[in-house]
């Protein structure tokens, strides 16, 4: 179909034009930071909707990967490049790959019928709305507290919840730029030492559990 083929590059050009126009509009009134934020978060929301609505679990997992990548883009905008890279390695690079694999091995002929209808629609809705409400309320109270903080300072938060960053050692020094790895490491191992240790212990317990649960065979494990 030649007509259909001709439409595709035209559509691509139109999309590029719309993107440029969007940049121009947003950049005109604010800055390039805001423009990138708008593009990335819009794409993130679209991917999230596609992830939930897609019937094919493989595609849903892939859209999940796209959502993760977009969120990492938002982390970058908040000058937290290490968090972004670490999230890509852990989530997009390892966890979703494992998801994909389980799906591909388990459901080679598309999704089964019982996956397509909810078994507890009422209960699920109530739980989901409760979760959404709690999150919105938390965000709102957090936003009131931090209404006037600069976005780029988020790499090294002065407060987490209600606790302030006490130690002077974990604040960035004069020379240090915000978002440098050194500051992050210092904060992790001074102010948040207990959280890091508890998370590490949890992971250790989980890995021991996984080894204990894994089936053993008489000859080798593969």
């Amino acid at each position: 179909m030649p007509g259909k083929r001709a439409i595709r590059p035209l559509g691509g050009l139109a999309a590029l034009g719309a993107l440029a126009l969007g940049f121009q509009l947003v950049a005109g009134e604010q800055n390039i930071n805001g423009a990138i934020y708008v593009v990335v978060s819009t794409f993130c929301l679209i991917a999230a909707v596609l992830m939930i609505t897609n019937r094919n679990p493989v595609y849903a997992a892939l859209w999940f990967a796209v959502v993760t990548l977009c969120v990492c883009g938002l982390f970058l905008l908040q000058s937290a490049p290490f968090l972004a890279a670490a999230s890509i390695i852990v989530y997009a690079g390892a966890i979703i790959v494992t998801f994909l694999f389980v799906i591909m091995l388990a459901q080679q002929s598309g999704s089964s019928g019982y996956d397509q209808s909810s078994r507890q629609p009422l209960f699920a809705s109530i739980v989901a709305f409760t979760l959404l409400g709690t999150m919105l309320m938390t965000f709102q109270s957090w936003g009131e507290q931090h209404a006037h903080t600069q976005v780029s300072e988020a790499a090294l938060p002065k407060t987490i919840g209600t606790a302030t960053v006490v130690h002077a050692a974990s604040r960035p020094t004069e020379k240090e730029q915000v978002g440098e790895l050194r500051g992050l490491g210092r904060a992790l191992f001074s102010d948040f030492l207990f959280s890091v240790e508890i998370a590490g212990t949890l992971l250790l317990i989980a890995s021991i559990g996984a080894i204990a649960l894994a089936p053993r065979r008489a000859q080798g494990t593969l």
Partner: peptide, 22 residues
């Protein structure tokens, strides 16, 4: 001047497996 240079390469490298799997 990417502060996380090597980590960035590893992060992108970990996405390369998608090409092969898909």
């Amino acid at each position: 001047n990417v502060d996380i240079g090597i980590v960035f390469i590893f992060a992108i490298g970990s996405l390369a497996v998608y090409g092969i799997i898909l």
